[in-house]
Design a protein around this nucleic acid. Structure first.
Lengths: 110, 110
DNA sequence: ATTATACTTAACCAATCAGTTAACTATAAA
DNA sequence: TTTATAGTTAACTGATTGGTTAAGTATAAT
């Protein structure tokens, strides 16, 4: 049995690996939204939406408030920054600058 | 049945959502490596490693060459840039600048 | 007190994922 | 020509994922 704990970066990338969840984040970038508001654009049941929201929440990509029977969701950038920073380590592999220096070091290593 | 085609961004994030594969990219950032070289640090069978490499390859995160019986792998930054750019849309949610302007627009929307 | 609204949980299902072992292919070396 | 090295493919397994419907909880409105 694999361990049931998932590291934050893996949880973040896994949450982002679904177009429905990415669309939900895009919606939340325009402002907070209730679960039903988030669900509106999608041709799927509310429980399915609820599960997607749970994935986003567990990954720390959104926070959930309480307002009577509503659960307003808000985007939280902290884990997004973590993911961005991780990918940012590899900038050199899509930026040609450094006048071939990185490519040179690259060949030295192999 | 869900469609079997996965969009590039989903494939990229899914590939990054595994610590083994992220470690492989970290290794490849130091220089090209054969499949066995990539496998060395991991306590798993070679077929398992081969599958991880296939996931990275299908996501376009690495390219594979041929050198006799070796299949040298090289990191490819294009899709990483795509993922970075997507996340970059949300920078405002971890950068407090803009003197509350974004927060103000945020509340206007809701 | 009843009903409507907002959302979650439970139970289920098919597909995918991450690993295994065993068998296979391809190139190089003896 | 045999053997070793490098890697992939096939077949299987248990866990996870993404969806469903049905039932349950919590708050508000009538």
């Amino acid at each position: 049995m694999r361990p049931s704990t998932t590291d934050p970066l893996s949880a973040t990338f896994a949450a982002l690996a679904d177009p429905t969840r990415r669309a939900m984040l895009a919606r939340l970038a325009l402002g907070d939204a209730s679960v039903n508001e988030l669900a509106a654009p999608f041709a799927m049941s509310l429980p399915a939406v609820s599960k997607h929201i749970k994935v986003l929440h567990k990954a720390g990509l959104i926070t959930k408030g309480r307002d009577a029977q509503w659960r307003p969701c808000r985007i939280d950038g902290v884990q997004l920054k973590g993911a961005m920073d991780w990918i940012g380590q590899y900038k050199q592999f899509w930026e040609e600058r450094l006048d071939r220096l990185d490519a040179y070091l690259h060949t030295l290593q192999s």
